[in-house]
C-alpha cells in the first residue's frame, strides 16, 4: 500500500513540474537569465511549493527529530559550497535539473536520455572517487 502512495507522490511531483512548464529548459533558462527577458515563473513555483511542503513537515511524523534522509546535520562546509556551485553551473548550462530531466525522459523528449545518463555518470564518478563519506542519506 505504501509503495502506491509513494508512486502517487512521484506522480504529483512530475505533474507539478509538467503543469508549471518547469520541464521546459527554455523557460527555466528564462528565469535564470536575469539580464534578459526575465520570466519569474520558477520563483512562483517555489514560493507555492515551499509553504505546502512546510505544512507537511510541520504535521509529519518525527517532528523535531533529525529526519532520515535530511542533510541538516552537518555544517555549511566547503563540500556543500563546491557541490552547489558545480550543480549551478550544470543547471545554468542546459536549463535542466534532475526532476525535469526525468519527466522529459518520460516524455521521450530529445536529449533527455543523454542528460539523465550524464547525471548518472556524474553521480557514478562521485561514488568512484570515494568523495562520499559515511553519510548515506541526504536531501537530494
Amino acid at each position: 500500500m505504501r509503495v502506491f502512495i509513494v508512486f502517487a507522490a512521484g506522480l504529483l511531483f512530475g505533474l507539478g513540474l509538467t503543469v508549471s512548464a518547469m520541464i521546459d529548459p527554455a523557460k527555466v533558462l528564462a528565469f535564470l537569465d536575469i539580464a534578459g527577458d526575465w520570466d519569474s515563473s520558477l520563483a512562483v513555483v517555489m514560493a507555492c511549493a515551499i509553504p505546502v511542503a512546510a505544512i507537511g513537515f510541520r504535521w509529519g511524523p518525527r517532528r523535531g527529530a533529525p529526519p532520515a534522509g535530511q542533510c541538516g546535520g552537518w555544517g555549511i562546509d566547503a563540500r556543500l559550497v563546491a557541490g552547489a556551485v558545480l550543480f549551478g553551473v550544470g543547471w545554468g548550462l542546459a536549463g535542466y535539473c534532475p526532476g525535469p530531466g526525468l519527466v522529459a525522459l518520460g516524455l521521450g523528449r530529445p536529449g533527455s536520455g543523454l542528460f539523465v545518463a550524464s547525471i548518472l555518470g556524474g553521480m557514478a564518478l562521485f561514488e568512484l572517487l570515494g568523495v562520499r563519506r559515511a553519510q548515506r542519506r541526504h536531501a537530494g
Binding site: 563546491a82 557541490g83 552547489a84 534532475p98 543523454l114 542528460f115 547525471i119 568523495v131 553519510q135 537530494g140
Partner: peptide, 22 residues
C-alpha cells in the same frame, strides 16, 4: 548537455541536494 548532466550529477552528490532537496 552531457557536460551539464555530469556537473548536475556530480555536484548534487557533493552538495547533497538539488532544486527539490535543497
Amino acid at each position: 548537455l552531457a557536460v551539464a548532466g555530469g556537473l548536475v550529477g556530480f555536484g548534487t552528490r557533493l552538495g547533497n541536494g538539488c532544486t527539490s532537496g535543497h
